[in-house]
Design a protein around this nucleic acid. Structure first.
Lengths: 339, 339
DNA sequence: AGGGGCCTTAAAACCGTTTACTTAAAATTT
DNA sequence: AAATTTTAAGTAAACGGTTTTAAGGCCCCT
């Protein structure tokens, strides 16, 4: 690195102006084809590196899009991210990822950093307890925001997520249809819209089947494999002896099945288990996990599209867009048999 | 957003110069304490947002650090990332993540984008087949690079990774010690240094125990749960009837155990299985997975530290730093018993 | 009273691109 | 051949900070 190569370096070496070089490199028809080629050639030869911060300072567009979710390692979000990525890739946007681990502060820091970098837009799955000011911060500074997977009350931002209430009722109905009557709900929290919706879907399905709702059958909290694993102990000690469990998501369900298996019972035969999300892993779990597809790929794709549309000026309607979940039946659920 | 608030906005509103504001906001002792406070107060009141690209244009430091690995969704890399993140967090650096999915092109694009953004440094786990020019590209443009998890031949970049050959021999020896003689190696590829090292470790351990090495016992390829799951079929059809499997990593091992279980056999009793990495998941798998801790957290921490040190001027020695793996024995391995 | 030193703030150059405006040359029209 | 249009390239002013250098005001000293 003898010295930084910049537009003017190329310009001088060729005896033209920097304006010409700038235009040529961006394929402007304002510069003659021959000159354009010569410039591009020279740029390559010198190993020129485009300085985005300078450009962005001038144009006030950075090509950066931020994405912040609870935990990118969580396969559910990972699948959303993958969809976002592939949608964004073809539009030459760079994206910056971050976890907030449900820390409002971490999330705010991220949004602020993004603003400092001149981010063009942000896609977020808001942390639990996000105050509206934090979300408005982005919008107020000219950085459009799109929400995924979770919504925030009283805030009119475009939101894409699965229809949780409907989805979980699919799973619950499936178990009821198999003859189960004592059905536990394992995992989840009331602190997110998702949590409330899912619990509501479970309650609704039971009520519709005239099954009394017993709050003791709700094991709230777990949202990870580890959590599901630990919940199994609690589950097996319940006096009501449930025969089935509707789990918060696939991770909880898989951990839960492992916990059940550790206790010498066989999930799918002794206890029926449903998951939620239909992660890739659900199909290869033992037994194969009956679950509900939550539309991750659609959520990601649509959210990215919506943001790109907004950036290019078209005004998408705000509000919540629900993706319809679908049932995926495998071996972890079976008809109730008396023991 | 009536109008963008910038340094000059604050300056004018207070009747001072932009220079004073700039210095005050960065706690320079050059500006009187009283003025400093007044300026900070006003900055907060107006909702000023620091423009990093402008600053970075002048200072040529961006505070951005890039990290590119094979797949951030892979828990092995996720654990490394977590360690990097926590190390970087306390130094007010923003980091940008990317997967390369072992595509050299995707990786090169990332490095180039990072250069355009003025990245201060990059931590990478190089894609299979990365040519040295691609790695030198970063260094040549003043962006120091640190390697993790994989090394590249004939290139003197600081590298942090586990001692694969030693680690896999730990696992192999453990199985040999339990009486196993026909031991398969499931997964991995010869195209990475890691792959070659692990296979070598396996071969060495067998040789030392005077067990003939049978190439047919190597099921090369799988590196994911799905891959491990599918490899189980192949494994069970081997004419040599192996009684144990040394798996490429925990993911392969878990998938493999699921595959074995699907066939009606019980991993840990009928077939002994070892993993590699000691992911969080290994402990809660059924049965608990015997595996080798690969030092992910150390790798991440040390790599981040090394980069930060380099950025602050101190000259760390280049070359490969090996982290010593450790055995973690659980229930997926058991003494050989004749059936 | 004049000058040296210190503290605080101001002025101005600079970072690398983009872009509106201008100019020069070439091509076309009359 | 002069006038006009088209095309190609150059000029210079932003963009929003940082940083070096200089200047103004005040106190203290001899």
């Amino acid at each position: 690195m003898a010295q930084k190569i910049k537009l003017s370096t190329i310009a001088e070496s060729l005896g033209v102006s920097t304006a010409t070089v700038s235009l040529a490199l961006r394929d402007s028809p304002l510069v003659a084809a021959a000159t354009r080629e010569k410039i591009k050639e020279q740029s390559r030869a010198l190993g020129y590196i485009y300085n985005r911060r300078a450009a962005s300072l001038r144009t006030s567009r950075s090509g950066i899009i931020g994405v912040v979710v609870h935990d990118i390692q969580n396969p559910f979000y990972a699948e959303i991210l993958k969809a976002i990525e592939s949608e964004l890739d073809r539009s030459s946007h760079t994206f910056i990822l971050s976890n907030h681990y449900d820390s409002v502060e971490k999330q705010r820091n991220f949004v602020e950093t993004l603003l400092q970098l001149g981010g063009d837009g942000v896609i977020m799955s808001p942390a639990i307890g996000t105050p509206r000011e934090d979300l408005e911060l982005a919008e107020n500074n000219g950085m459009p925001a799109i929400l995924v997977a979770r919504s925030v009350e009283n805030l009119d931002l475009p939101t894409y997520r699965g229809d949780d209430s409907y989805g979980i009722s699919l799973a619950t109905n499936h178990l009821i249809g198999l003859g189960h009557r004592t059905i536990a709900m394992v995992g989840g929290t009331d602190q997110t819209s998702t949590g409330r919706d899912r619990y509501q879907g479970y309650v609704n399905a039971l009520k519709k089947a005239n099954i009394p709702v017993d709050p003791a059958l709700r094991i709230a909290g777990p949202r990870s494999k580890q959590g599901g694993f630990e919940a199994a102990v609690h589950f097996l000690s319940l006096p009501q002896k449930p025969t089935a469990a509707v789990c918060w998501n696939d991770l909880v369900a898989i951990g839960f099945m492992n916990g059940i298996a550790r206790a010498g019972l066989m999930p799918g035969r002794d206890i029926s288990v449903t998951g939620y999300d239909d992660l890739e892993e659900a199909a290869i779990a033992t037994p194969g996990l009956t679950t509900v597809w939550n539309g991750q790929s659609e959520v990601g794709r649509l959210a990215a599209r919506a943001l790109l549309d907004k950036l290019s000026g078209s005004h998408e309607p705000d509000g919540i867009h629900l993706i319809k979940p679908e049932m995926r039946i495998r071996q972890s659920t079976a008809p109730l048999h008396r023991s």
